[in-house]
Design a protein around this nucleic acid. Structure first.
Lengths: 337, 337
DNA sequence: CCGCGTCGATGAAACGTATCATCGGGCGCA
DNA sequence: TGCGCCCGATGATACGTTTCATCGACGCGG
């Protein structure tokens, strides 16, 4: 690998001059600049980012830890984050915790070693110890969808408790009396909050009961498996209203139910998803779902973390909370509400 | 930030010993190790990855450039890549080119500056100049879904020409005579090949015609817009069979057509998607589609690039081509084939 | 003609780590 | 007891940048 020194030699100037040309081109004489430029081209010189960063003491990298990259929701948030980061001249490093706090800890460790400029945590499984560590090291961090998880850092979230509360209240209004929440594990913060929201709605309506059908993952396949459990039950033991942890799980349920009698959606079982993915409007039965604004999540998160990174001292913690919107479609409409 | 030197001082040993303890713990005496361990803990020392990398000459990072992170297909490939990379102790840096070769060039530049261990390009827009650059620098690179794009690097691909050829042949067997391919731009290699496959199938069947309805992106929204164009036409000018560039676009078409007379799927228009996303089986009309194995893509790509990175000399170029599978569902079934 | 300011270039120092040649001490074996 | 060997620790060096104090030359104003 060719270094700045060889460039300097070939251009007949000092190393410092080459560096100056690289960083403040206007401060070097035109003909010198031209010689350097040519030397760089001839030698195929490429800056060594590690050396730069070592000297600078920090990187120009932002890190994003998603709960699960497979879920289109996080793909879209990541996309928004990446665009916004690029606008600020920052790299983006992505990682996926898959709901495993240990794995996430390892990633955070790695990122701290990398001296990343900032960290966006959208996993919902972040340990308090990790957060304290990040705070102690003054590493700019923003939490996504972790409303109230920590008062150490700023966050941008949807109020998931309200989300499922509205969803379940809607189901009850549609005549459902036996509600099931499908999804897990509740060690994931978002999941825990959604369960809590469902609980609150049910408690406000006597005569309605709630059960939780946990899953390990939140994929189509996981939803399918959970659906099979319901299918195997006797009819009277099945729920008549279901809230899924997200749209993927909801799709899995639909796949499992097929169009078997006693399992029709929405007549036998009313169904609500979560996220409002792009395809939610066009599933077999168009999906009622709770919308979360992913672009806004991504952009705001980057802005918050960038502001903190550029600030001198410690900025006040800002918690941005968005009220989720219930989008009603066919999968939950049984009678005129 | 606390460095290895301060740890050494506090533990009463030399810098070299601390480094040895970090890298080959068994080669340091137990009580010394314990003193160092404690010093590290007290001081909250964290390794500086930039310095390590500068010393080592290379990073432990793999880079992955996707065509579009928003597309669930790439989310799943990225997920597979990330898992496999983690197994090999490698970081993963993600980027999304969004079909823009300039943007992709910039990213490749960045990654070369970062001295990444290897590069996985799944964008379909990579410029030859960039590939030559990477080859000249001997940077381990693997192309995903770029069959025949370059003989400089190994690749793992699905034969997209065969994919759409089968899809269109299937449509013709279903009685379609006016085929449309919806998706673009054809500067994206995968798209160009899919159009070529459609062309080949049509040419083999006299009396069948093909048109291409280009889109800028390959999202649900883009498909919706393209659909609106078809809706606006007079009935006899509409295609009776459509191949979409991917499942997202297909869903957009379905959304646009709604259930208007003359635009029913599959009776008026038979539809085939591409990718076989998880939700493809559960769209409003279950989607006939061309399956691409995403896990296999991700794992194989990492293996190929790792092998090259670990090898002494230059490994022979390996082009792994997978024959795509047509998954027939309701969206294309008009009569008994 | 002298002094001063400016512009452009220089070269050394520092960032934090891994490596490697070197060294000292203790132990086993003859 | 003496020799050699191995274990464990040392300290200097190098990786490729950026920065900063310094220096020389040149032009301009007094």
């Amino acid at each position: 690998m060719v270094s700045i020194r060889e460039v300097a030699e070939r251009a007949g100037v000092s190393v410092g001059t080459v560096s100056k040309h690289l960083n403040t081109p206007h401060r070097v004489a035109p003909d010198t600049a031209e010689r350097i430029r040519r030397a760089i081209e001839d030698l195929g010189y490429v800056r060594n980012e590690a050396a730069r960063q070592l000297r600078a003491g920090q990187s120009n990298t932002l890190a994003f830890v998603a709960l699960e990259l497979r879920n289109p929701f996080f793909g879209e948030v990541a996309h928004a984050v990446e665009r916004r980061a690029a606008e600020s001249g920052l790299f983006l490093v992505l990682a996926s915790s898959d709901g495993d706090p240990v794995r996430e800890s390892q990633y955070i460790d790695m990122f701290v070693q990398q001296r990343v400029r900032g960290l966006i945590l959208a996993s919902g499984t972040t340990r308090d110890a990790d957060l304290e560590l990040l705070a102690a090291r003054d590493i700019p961090t923003v939490l996504v969808d972790a409303y109230g998880a920590s008062d150490l850092f700023s966050s941008v979230s949807v109020d998931d408790v309200v989300g499922t509360r509205r969803a379940v209240t809607h189901l009850i209004e549609q005549g459902c009396r036996s509600i099931a929440f499908v999804g897990g594990p509740d060690t994931v913060r978002q999941i825990a909050e959604r369960i809590e929201g469902a609980r609150q709605a049910v408690e406000a309506h006597p005569g309605v009961r709630l059960e939780v059908l946990p899953t390990e993952e939140r994929t189509v396949a996981a939803g399918h498996h959970a659906g099979d459990v319901i299918v195997a039950r006797r009819a009277r033991e099945r729920p008549d209203g279901i809230v899924a942890a997200n749209d993927s799980v909801a799709v899995g349920l639909v796949q499992s139910f097929g169009d078997r009698p006693g399992l029709r959606i929405p007549s036998d079982i009313a169904l609500v998803g979560y996220d409002d993915m792009e395809f939610a409007a066009t599933t077999l039965v168009p999906l009622t779902t709770v919308r979360r604004p992913r672009d806004m999540f991504g952009r705001t998160a980057v802005d918050l973390v960038r502001d903190q990174a550029e600030a001198e001292g410690r900025l006040p913690v800002r918690s941005i909370v968005i009220q989720p919107e219930l989008v009603v479609r066919a999968s939950s409409l049984r009678r005129r509400g």
